[in-house]
Design a protein around this nucleic acid. Structure first.
Lengths: 175, 175
DNA sequence: CGCATCATGTAATTGGTTACATGATTAA
DNA sequence: TTAATCATGTAACCAATTACATGATGCG
């Protein structure tokens, strides 16, 4: 379900696009909200076209198809936003690693966390750079809230990793 | 892969357990790190037993089987922690909703966010209560880091929802 | 001409959910 | 005795990844 919502959202934010365009938008723009490969996107767009949520235009060169959201598509998106209660489903490799930290030696855990923190600092810089640039979205507002949330979450993970490393180092030093 | 790692971790933290026990542990203890149903857990335990990562003891009443982690299992877990680079894979319905906020009316977005904040405040209280209680884990340390991370993440989402609602309310009021 | 990129698709497999199915034990 | 809980499994289905497969266009 969420894949189709993400696609409808991208079509709303970016205007009519091809499957190829949408694949790139997933990679470059909402990758920290949702992810999908072209092999999942193409069939889903065809299904959505069959159901009348989007219209197809077989026009461009190289058999390019352009998809645009329909009234029905917008209604579906709106219904999902307002009626559906957010599922608190959660699977996070990071949280799993956090749980498993005690299975390795303290010095190993510290090294792991410090390495993570470095990666996260780089990611933060990347996201801040995106925020500084002009938006890629034709409609205003899109990206702003998700990007803000992404930056906060990345900073949180970074700080957690640093502080946890320091804490483990301190308590291991006392042994 | 991660399911099997989670199972090995739970067997390390809680000691020998049945599939039924592990199912409950997923629900009650590491649900904000990983989730799994019994229909996924039972077959996976059998596969792991066949591969020598765990041993089975068909002993208890009602055909209860007890599983314990082996040396090979511990090695697999350790290898995952140290060698595997964490995948930054991310699919978050919350982040997707954040991205899609501009598709609904400002007053609707504000209501949505405020409702979310309420739910998150309740969850925070729940997690704080778990932290206050004695640990369910036989081995010390487990749960501590993941729980701390979970509390921080829940607070972040709560604050983000509140602040974003306030911001939208303010800018909508100016119109 | 040759390489990068544009562009779309399908097939096989793995991961995960929901629903179906069954039965033993315990406590009120 | 009957309801709750303990306990294990399978089947059908949906979601997602990886790999396979093909061809057009544009640029150097």
């Amino acid at each position: 379900m969420s894949l189709r919502i993400a696609l409808l959202g991208l079509l709303t934010a970016a205007g009519p696009s091809s499957g190829y365009d949408l694949t790139k938008l997933f990679e470059s723009s909402i990758s920290n909200a949702w992810q999908a490969r072209h092999s999942q996107i193409y069939p889903e767009l065809n299904k959505m076209a069959a159901e009348g949520l989007v219209t197809v235009e077989e026009a461009g060169p190289r058999g390019r198809k352009s998809y645009a959201i329909t009234k029905e598509g917008s209604a579906e998106l709106r219904a999902w936003m307002l009626d559906e209660q957010p599922s608190r489903m959660h699977r996070s490799e990071t949280a799993l690693r956090a749980f498993l930290l005690p299975t390795i030696e303290p010095h190993e855990a510290v090294a792991l966390l410090r390495g993570q923190a470095e990666v996260l600092a780089a990611k933060m810089a990347e996201l801040e750079a995106i925020r500084a640039k002009a938006s890629v979205w034709r409609k205003p507002g899109f990206g702003r809230y998700a990007l803000d949330l992404g930056i906060r979450q990345t900073r949180l993970l970074h700080d957690w990793a640093e502080e946890t490393a320091a804490e483990i180092e301190k308590s291991a030093g006392q042994d």
